[in-house]
């Protein structure tokens, strides 16, 4: 299955360098890009920068709840850190335990 990266310019350059198909997106066109990548059955892992993911947080949460693939992994962009941990949030919501870390 394919790996696809979505994010700002620097992120796409970085992942392009190692041969990962990369799409440069911004907050305007993220929705349609997200939809088209998710409805593609051949995508196994979707790498997204968190700053982009934050702008469509609800869609991502909904998608994750109902679908197995693609697995969405959020990475920091070049500016730095991850602010939220979506998996920890999901676990807190569903099972009610807190994970350490971010």
């Amino acid at each position: 299955m394919k790996i696809i990266a979505m994010g700002d310019k620097d992120t796409t350059i970085a992942f392009n360098l190692v041969g990962v198909e990369s799409k440069e997106v911004d907050e305007e066109n993220i929705r349609e890009n997200f939809k088209s990548v998710c409805s593609d059955d051949s995508v196994g892992v979707l790498i997204m920068t968190q700053s982009i993911a934050n702008s469509i947080r609800e869609e991502i949460d909904l998608w994750k709840y109902h679908h197995n693939l693609p697995i969405i992994v959020e990475v920091p962009d070049k500016k730095g850190k991850l602010e939220i941990d979506p998996l920890a949030r999901l676990i807190k919501k569903t099972i009610g335990i807190e994970l350490g870390g971010i």
């Binding site: 190692v18 709840y65 697995i71 992994v73 990475v75 998996l87 999901l90």
Partner: peptide
């Protein structure tokens, strides 16, 4: 940069496996 992005990619994909399964398990639990 090439070497490091590649290392990061391997970590990301391994993480994807864990996060994908943990997420499914959490929802099913």
């Amino acid at each position: 940069a090439l070497v490091n992005v590649n290392k990061a990619l391997v970590a990301i994909v391994k993480l994807a496996e864990i996060e994908g399964s943990v997420q499914r398990l959490a929802i099913e639990i």
